[in-house]
């Protein structure tokens, strides 16, 4: 991102196409939210170490998107999807208090999504033959 956008300026047009294609490889859930996910990922990667409030438009992009993922996901995303979700979660979770109610809800959704993707596999009970 820094190489493409020079660190501070707007990224060239081909970067958006590239990220759109990358998000398309992240699994069905990301594909269903391709536009908002691509936009939020581009914004999140523009300043990876900073809280979400430090980038214009990122908070408003992440709030509905992470709430949507939180409501929709019942199982972890595939690894490629997690790799693309992680920068967004990191930006949301780096927001420090005091924060608005909306930012707190975004952070709660981000934490729930992070927790969902911590387990190496879904836990299943030991069962006999079916």
């Amino acid at each position: 991102m820094q190489a493409a956008g020079g660190g501070g300026g707007r990224a060239p047009a081909w970067v958006e196409s590239l990220f759109d294609a990358l998000v398309g490889c992240g699994g069905a859930q990301l594909r269903q939210r391709r536009g908002p996910s691509c936009r939020a990922l581009l914004l999140a990667l523009s300043a990876p170490g900073l809280p979400m409030g430090a980038t214009d438009g990122l908070s408003s992009a992440l709030a509905p998107l992470l709430a949507d993922y939180h409501g929709a996901l019942r199982a972890p995303l595939p690894p490629a999807g997690v790799s693309m979700l992680l920068p967004m979660l990191a930006r949301a979770l780096r927001e420090e208090p005091p924060m608005s109610e909306a930012a707190r809800e975004t952070q709660d959704a981000a934490l729930a999504l992070l927790g969902l993707h911590c387990a190496p596999a879904l836990g299943l009970a030991q069962v006999g033959e079916i």
């Binding site: 690894p79 997690v82 790799s83 992680l86 993707h117 190496p120 596999a121 879904l122």
Partner: peptide, 16 residues
Amino acid sequence: SPVSPLYLAQAEREAQ
């Protein structure tokens, strides 16, 4: 099957 292993790079696990 619902068994869904999630293979992530160690750097991603460390970031988590």
